[in-house]
Design a protein around this nucleic acid. Structure first.
Lengths: 201, 201
DNA sequence: GTCTATATAGAGATAGAC
DNA sequence: GTCTATCTCTATATAGAC
């Protein structure tokens, strides 16, 4: 059998996927290194090693590049959260695993996560993003209800918000020790979930 | 004595101050109504009822308009926090007053506060802003130490972050009842401050 | 001192050669 | 399919009349 000189269809598709992923990852790296204001289509193309024309071959506009990065990150978080909810029966351990997932997600690339959040707020969510966000909220709610039977959608949102806020603030202030931050996040989350025994004035 | 037909110096200064304030408030209203991406110098001038040329008579560049808005908001928060720390001896009441101050600040104009935060992150702080932020942190730390003697700068940052995060998330999700939100913020903050009696896994 | 008109720069996006 | 060159738009900021 001679060497085929025309790539098969799925080989081309694989190459196309790789290029798409390179573009998305280039956007991630720019966010990480230089922030949201540096995220221009020309820079994305340059960093991805393709021309601006090629970028627009793969994505209809800038927004869709960011949207795909968002989907990628959210899908990874969803996987992590679901894995956390599989862990055994101890409710405290489950919440601990949930916090770990959130921290891992936020701490893997803290600057990127922060800048992506900033960009996200200015973007309308499409259907797939809404579905992912809802799935994450549901999965988190399932875990939280093991500790706090009244936990609802607002509870899940608050817990995510607390995790993000403490990690982002710590990262901005130059903290780098995840265990110290984990301890603080857990205190806030557990305290939030279990109504304190003392009275609130 | 005839009607003076030339304004005195401090009258001119007062007019100038009023124009400056009108420009800053116009920026605030644009953030509130249309978000950070709509905050252009032309729109600020238009909304303030002056021409773009006049805006640049009062501010050297766009950044300094935003900076003055930031200073205005931070100074107001500092006043509120200091007032909260004056209240009597009960540490829980003091923390409650602190949370109320933060909520009042964030809830007075939630959309504006959120968008201003977004803009802020992309801006380098000047000396006056750094001083204000430090003063706020110190004042909060003084209150927190009444409940938690180990409270340090990171503690104060975390508490502010928790307040902001829960309020912003709630506002984004369409919640409007401040008392419900206050209860959740207090649970998270008090839980964060007092190490729980049960063990953390 | 306030305006209109405009210079300048950089963004997103497209056209058309190869 | 990928590139270079470029269009178009909109932003910040300035110039110069009044």
């Amino acid at each position: 059998m001679s060497k085929p000189h025309q790539p098969r269809k799925h080989a081309r598709q694989a190459r196309a996927r790789a290029t798409q992923e390179a573009i998305v990852e280039a956007a991630a790296r720019i966010l990480e290194a230089d922030g949201a204001s540096a995220l221009t289509t020309n820079r994305i193309a340059e960093r991805a090693g393709v021309s601006i024309g090629s970028l627009y071959q793969y994505f209809p506009d800038k927004r869709s590049v960011i949207a795909q990065l968002l989907r990628r990150e959210r899908a990874a978080l969803l996987d992590d959260v679901r894995a956390a909810s599989d862990g055994g029966g101890d409710p405290f351990a489950a919440v601990g695993a949930l916090v770990d997932a959130a921290l891992r997600h936020q701490f893997a690339r803290p600057a990127m996560a922060m800048e992506l959040e900033r960009v996200e707020t200015g973007l309308a969510m499409d259907n797939e993003e809404i579905a992912l966000a809802a799935a994450i909220e549901t999965a988190i709610g399932n875990i939280l209800r093991r500790l706090d039977p009244q936990a609802d959608a607002a509870t899940a949102r608050d817990v995510v918000a607390i995790c993000r806020a403490i990690v982002n603030t710590a990262a901005l202030a130059g903290e780098t020790d995840p265990t110290r931050i984990r301890e603080r996040v857990l205190r806030a989350v557990i305290g939030y979930l279990r109504p304190p025994a003392f009275s609130i004035p």
